[in-house]
Design a protein around this nucleic acid. Structure first.
Lengths: 143, 143
DNA sequence: CTCTAGTTGCAAACGATTTGCAATTGCATT
DNA sequence: AATGCAATTGCAAATCGTTTGCAACTAGAG
């Protein structure tokens, strides 16, 4: 029987290697990120953090996310009409399908689309530094 | 000899049909939009407007953009790291390649990518309401 | 255990955008 | 052309998400 192995990122080690101190609030936030199975925004992370340690401030959440983003440990996504949402940077690149009714985020990947993007950019005389592909959809009503 | 015909949208008529009054500030803003060949943001539109009529306010620019967006006459694009930028909604659908050095916006379209997106959404049980595909790139250095 | 640079919480500042309000103005009606 | 009033304006203040200055606090090297 095959188990789907969900790999968890070791944010603490990554930060230490970047010469950053591991403080109590940071440990709490990193724990939340490690456990998160969704794509929470800063306020959501803050709420979860406050539940564990009421003294944590929203600023620290933002500062920690910025740090992690800086060392490439997480990705920040500015989906339409809402605050930035975060996800671990582990695993292969993927794009997102956002359920416009629930806000749920579904990940997908299309090598074919990636190739086409490259071709297009190349034809226009550009090298792609990064891209953003987001599908905003509604769950098809099962008939 | 074939001429590229650039079609200009008739914002004024569109607004009138939507039961909206055409005021002096609106006329100025619509004129700017009609003439714009780029993808200006609200502040840029405001600056161009003030040059023609110093009494125009930024609020009115925002309100007018919202109106036009509401009737589907323009599209608002929230490209990374900057204010929303606008473009006329005439012409066929296209995506954007943003020059990360100059901010220039290049339009492109790939029917193949559109199809693939549909397939992906469908496979995930979703109907696409809209999407966002943005390539952020750097002009390839001509060797 | 000490020392200090890194980190914190707080409140204030920020940039983009929206909004309340009293004054103004399109424009349908006379 | 003059009237009337709802739509629209400019302004300032409010909003939202996020960042920042600062004095107090603490991780962790020595």
């Amino acid at each position: 029987m095959t188990e789907t192995v969900i790999q968890k990122p070791d944010y603490e080690t990554a930060l230490r290697e970047a010469g950053v101190r591991i403080t109590r609030p940071r440990r709490v936030i990193l724990g939340i990120l490690t456990d998160a199975e969704d794509h929470p925004d800063a306020m959501e992370i803050f709420k979860r953090a406050v539940a564990l340690d009421p003294s944590i401030s929203l600023s620290t959440v933002y500062r920690t996310m910025k740090l992690l983003e800086g060392i490439g440990a997480i990705h920040r996504h500015a989906f339409e009409g809402g605050p930035s949402r975060f996800e671990p940077a582990i695993g292969e690149h993927h794009d997102h399908l956002i359920d416009i009714e629930t806000g749920d985020v579904i990940e997908f990947h299309s090598e074919r689309i990636e190739e086409l993007q490259q071709e297009i950019a190349r034809a226009l005389g550009y090298d792609i530094v990064h891209h953003r592909l987001e599908l905003y959809g509604r769950r098809r009503r099962k008939k």
